[in-house]
Nucleic acid binder design. Sequence first.
DNA 1: CATGAATGAGGGTTCATTCAT
DNA 2: TATGAATGAACCCTCATTCAT
Lengths: 216, 216, 216, 216
Amino acid sequence: MAVAEPENTPRRRAPRADAMRNRDAIVEAAAEVLAEQGTAVDVREIARRSGVGMGTLYRHFPKKEDLVHTVLRKDFSEWAESARRAAIEAEEPWAALTDFYQQALTGYARHRAIMERFALTWADPDLEGIHQLRLVIEELCARATGLLRPGVTTDDLLLLLVSLGHAVQITGECRPLMWNRLLRISLDGLRADHDEPLPATPAPTTHPPNPQQPPR
Amino acid sequence: MAVAEPENTPRRRAPRADAMRNRDAIVEAAAEVLAEQGTAVDVREIARRSGVGMGTLYRHFPKKEDLVHTVLRKDFSEWAESARRAAIEAEEPWAALTDFYQQALTGYARHRAIMERFALTWADPDLEGIHQLRLVIEELCARATGLLRPGVTTDDLLLLLVSLGHAVQITGECRPLMWNRLLRISLDGLRADHDEPLPATPAPTTHPPNPQQPPR
Amino acid sequence: MAVAEPENTPRRRAPRADAMRNRDAIVEAAAEVLAEQGTAVDVREIARRSGVGMGTLYRHFPKKEDLVHTVLRKDFSEWAESARRAAIEAEEPWAALTDFYQQALTGYARHRAIMERFALTWADPDLEGIHQLRLVIEELCARATGLLRPGVTTDDLLLLLVSLGHAVQITGECRPLMWNRLLRISLDGLRADHDEPLPATPAPTTHPPNPQQPPR
Amino acid sequence: MAVAEPENTPRRRAPRADAMRNRDAIVEAAAEVLAEQGTAVDVREIARRSGVGMGTLYRHFPKKEDLVHTVLRKDFSEWAESARRAAIEAEEPWAALTDFYQQALTGYARHRAIMERFALTWADPDLEGIHQLRLVIEELCARATGLLRPGVTTDDLLLLLVSLGHAVQITGECRPLMWNRLLRISLDGLRADHDEPLPATPAPTTHPPNPQQPPR
DNA sequence: CATGAATGAGGGTTCATTCAT
DNA sequence: TATGAATGAACCCTCATTCAT
C-alpha cells in the first residue's frame, strides 16, 4: 500500500496497491453504470467499463449483490453525509427540510440503483447510509416541529422521498423538473397550517401477499 | 386455391367454451402474476399457473407482450371505467378527486405491471385505458377549479398518481395504508388555499441522456 | 355417434362426398403451398388455406409426410403424364427431347417441393410419377439414339433435369429465363457431334458420409 | 471433435491460445456440421461437436448467422483463392476453365451450406469470396474468348456452377462422379463450335412472386 | 367425423458465476 | 493475482402432432 511501484514491474511489491486501484476502478465504474441502468445491468458491462477482467471483479465481489451493496453503501453514505452537512448548515428549519428534498431529488434521485434499493429498504435499512438518511430526516423533522403539521413522522418524510424520487425517475429527460411542482405541493401539504390529523397507520400486518384483484 | 370467400360464409367461429376458458385462465393467471411480479415474469410461470402448455399460451398470445398488453388493457380499462363512474357519481368536486386517488391507490396501485407501464407511458399513453384515466383526471381537474390551487395541471395530477402508486407498492404488505398519509398531505397541498404559484416546467428538452453523476 | 342429427341436417347421405371434398381441398391447398414454399411449410398454413381444421387434415394424412407424398404423387404423375403425351405427339426425336426439358423447366421446376423431392429421389424413385418420368426420358433417350452423343444415359438426362431445375429455382423472379441459356448449352453438349466419350461413373459406393474437408 | 492440433500442443498449457483453439474448434465443428447439414443445424449440435458450452460459442459468435458467415467467408475465400491460383497456373485457357469446374465440384460442391448460400447470393454476392469467385470466372471467361461459344457470360458460367454443384450434392455418396458427365456435356456445349446464339435473357423484372402453378 | 385448441420438445439467445491460464 | 474465456440454466418463441368438444 505504501510501496512505490517502479514502472517496469519488479512485481513483487505491487499487490495491495494494485488491488486497491482495481477495486476502486470497479466500484467507480459500477457506480456509474448502476446509476444509469439500475441493478439489472450486465456484470460484464461493469467489468468492461472498469477495465478489469471478470475474475478480478469477482475476486473482489464474489456476488453481483456484493458489488451493488458496496456501491450503494458508498453512494448512500455520501448522500447521507452531504445531507447531514446541509442540515447542519441550514439555519431555518423549514428551509433545511426544503433544501434536503431539493438536493436529494436533484442529485440522487436519478440514480436508478439508489432508488431501486431505497424503495426496497427504506423501512428496514440494510445500509448504514440509509439509516443515516433516516437520522437526518429525523432531525429535520424534529427541528421543524411546529412548522410541520402535527403527526408527521420520519417515515412519512422518507416515504415521500422515495415517492418523489420515483417521480424524478419517470419524468426523466423529457419532462425535466416537473417533479419540482410535486415537491412544492407536498411540502405545502406538510405545513402546520394543515391541522387535520393524518390517517393512522395500522401496525405492520401480514397481508395476503397477492391482493391485486381489482375491486368491484 | 383458397381465395376470398363470398360473403355468405358468416364463418361463425363458435368461441369454443373450453378455449375461452383457457384464454381466460391465461389472462387471469397472467394478471395475477403480472400484478405480483411485474412484466419480468417468466412466460412459463404464467403457463404453469394457468394450467396450460406453452403452445396454448402462445396460440392465444403470439408474443409475451401481447399477453401483457391484453392484461394491462383490461386492467387499465376496468380502472378507468370504475374511475369514470365514480367521478360521475360523486357530487362534491373535491370529494370526487379525493375518492379517485383513494380508489386508485387502494385498488390498482399494487399491480406491479400496471404501475410499471403507467410509469413508462403516463405522459404518452399507449393504452386506451390510460388515456381515459387521463380524461377522468382532466375532468376532475376541471370540476375542481377554484378548489385546486392555481396552475395545477392534469399532468401534475397524473404524476402524483404514479408517484403515490409507487408509495403504495413499496409500503406493500408491511406498512399498509401508510401511503394514505402521503395522499392526504398531497391533496392538502393541492388545495386552493395555497396560492403560491408552482414552479414552471421547462418545455420538454433533449437532455444529455446520462445525467446520473451525483453531485459532490 | 350413429344418432341422427336433428332436422336441418340431412347429413345422412353426405359423409363420403364431404370427406372427399375436404380431402381434395387439402390436397389442392397443399399443392399450392408446397409449390410456393417447399416442404418446410407450416402445416397450419395448409389447413388454413384449405379451409379445414388441423384434425381433418391429420385424419386424412396422419403425418405431414403423408400429405406431401400424396401431393407430390399427384403432381409428379401429372407431370409424367403430360410429358408422356408430349413425347408421343412429338415427331422429331430431338424436338421431343428439347420440348420435354422446355416444358419441365417452364412448368414444373418452380415447384419447390417437387424439386426438393426430385433431388432426393431421382435415382431411387419412391413415387410412381418419378418412375414414369424416368420412363419417358428413357424413351426419349432411345428415340434420340444417333442424335445424342454416345454413352448418354437416362440417368444423365435425369440428373441434368434436376440440375437445371435448380437453376430455374435460383434464377427465380429476378433472372427469369436465364436458365434457358443453360438448357441450350446442355442440349448442345448432348448432341452426337460430340464424340468424345463421357467419363465413366464408378459403381455406387459407400463413401465416408462426411467428405467436406475442402482440398488444400 | 477438435482436431488438427499442431503437433506439440502441451494441451495443459494454453494461455490465450486456448481461446483461439476453442474458436477454431467451433469454426471447425461448424464447418463440418454446416457442410453436412446446411445452415439449418441446431447451434447446440455445433457446441456439442466442438466440445464447448453454448456460452462459449456465443461469446465468439454473438449470432448464429455470425458463425455461419465466418465459416462461409473462410470456405468461400479458400475456394476463391485456390481457384485463383489454379487459374494463374493453368496455361491453356480452356484447361483453366475445365479445371476450375473440376476443382470446384470435386472440392466444394459437397458443402451444403456453401451451396445454399451460393444459390442465394450468386447474383448478388454478400461475401468477399463469392465475389472473387466471380472475378476468377470473369477472367477465365475472358481468357477463353474465341474458345467459348459467342455470347456466353460470366453469369452463365456462375449459374452453371451452382447448377452443377447441386448435381454434385444430389449424387452424393451413392452416385459419385456422375456429375462429371454432366460437366463434360456442359463444357462441350460451351465450346465455340456451337455458333447458334444463346437465348436472350430479359432484363431483371419484378415478376408476380408466386408463379408456381404447374401447367395443365 | 370435423374442428381447432392443446401439447411440449426443441431452437436461438443471454448472463451470473466459475475456472484455467 | 489478474484475466477473460467457459459454463449452463433459463428465457422467449415455433411447430408437428394429439385430443377434447
